[in-house]
Nucleic acid binder design. Structure first.
Lengths: 148, 148
DNA sequence: TTGTATTAGTTACAATCGTAACTGTCGGTT
DNA sequence: AACCGACAGTTACGATTGTAACTAATACAA
C-alpha cells in the first residue's frame, strides 16, 4: 500500500474528538449553570424528552452511547429531582419503564430552547454549507453505528 | 423566531459526540491492547510525534484540547517508559521542551501505521464522498476553534 | 421441575479526572 | 532591589468514571 506520511491533523478520530469537545463544552456550560445538570443527566433527559414513548435504561444507553452505570446513576439523580418516574413492567419485572414527569418535561422544553438557540449560533458560526456537509458526514457515521 | 419542534437527532453536539465516541473507541482498543497506552498518553505521543520540533506541555494541551493536568500526567508516564525526554529551557526555566526518544519515535511510527489502516477502514466504511463532507465540516469547526 | 444461560439494572472498588491550591520562574513597576 | 501579577507545570483532593461482581428476573432445555 502507498505509505504516505501520517498526518495527525487528518486523522478522523482525532478531529472528531476535538470538534465534539469544543462544540459540547459551550452548551454544557449553559445547562450546568442553569440547572446544575451533569452531562449524563442532560443526555438522559434529552433521550427521554425526545422520545414519545417511555424508555428503559438500556435503551437510553444505546441511544446516547452511554455506559449503563452512567445511565443508572443519571436516572437515579433525575428521579431524586422528581424529573422522571419509573414504572415496572408487569410482564417482565427486570425492565423499568422510564418517563419524564410534567416537571421534567417542562425542564426539557426549556433546555430545548437553549439548544435551538445554540444550534442556530453554530449554524451562523460555521455557515450553512459547512453545516450541511457536516450533517451528511455524520449521517454516514450514524448509519455505520447502526449496522455495527 | 420560528419555533420548530426540537429534534435531538439533529442537534450537533449530540451527534458529534456520538460519532466521536464510536470512531475513537475501536481505535483505542488497538493501542490499549498493543501498548497499554491510555487515551491521554496516545494523544500526547501523537502530538509530539506529528510535530517536527519539540513542544511544551501547554502547547500539547492546546493542540489536543486536553487539560493541563491530563497532559502533565501523560508526560510523566511517557517519560517513565522512556518514550520522551524533557529538556529545560535555558532562557526561561518555566518551560520544558518535550521530545520523543528514538524508542518513542519508533512506537509512534508503529502506531501511525495502525492509524492509517484504521483511517482507510473508515474511508471504505463511510464512502469517499461522505468522508469528504465530514472533512469539510470538521474543517469549519476547526477554524471556529482557532478564532475563538 | 430443575438447572443453566441470559438479561436489566445496581453497586463496590479502584482508576481516572478536574478544580483549586501550590511551587518555581519570569517580566515589569516602583 | 523589592514587590506584584502572570505564567508553566505539579500535586492534593474530592468527584466522576468504568470494570467486574452482584441481585433479581426470565427463558429455555434437559
Amino acid at each position: 500500500m502507498a505509505e504516505e506520511r501520517f498526518e495527525l491533523e487528518t486523522f478522523l478520530p482525532y478531529r472528531l474528538n476535538r470538534a465534539a469537545e469544543f462544540v459540547a463544552l459551550r452548551f454544557a456550560a449553559q445547562y450546568k449553570a442553569r440547572y446544575q445538570l451533569t452531562r449524563p443527566e442532560w443526555r438522559t433527559l434529552a433521550a427521554l424528552g425526545s422520545s414519545r414513548r417511555s424508555m428503559t435504561a438500556t435503551e437510553i444507553g444505546a441511544h446516547s452511547t452511554m455506559h449503563k452505570t452512567k445511565v443508572s446513576r443519571a436516572v437515579f439523580s433525575l428521579e431524586q429531582r422528581r424529573w422522571l418516574k419509573r414504572e415496572e413492567d408487569g410482564r417482565d419485572r427486570r425492565f423499568e419503564h422510564l418517563a419524564l414527569t410534567p416537571t421534567g418535561r417542562q425542564a426539557y422544553q426549556e433546555l430545548t430552547e437553549l439548544a435551538s438557540d445554540y444550534q442556530a449560533e453554530l449554524h451562523s458560526m460555521l455557515g450553512a454549507e459547512n453545516m450541511e456537509a457536516l450533517s451528511q458526514g455524520l449521517g454516514a457515521v450514524e448509519r455505520a453505528i447502526n449496522n455495527r
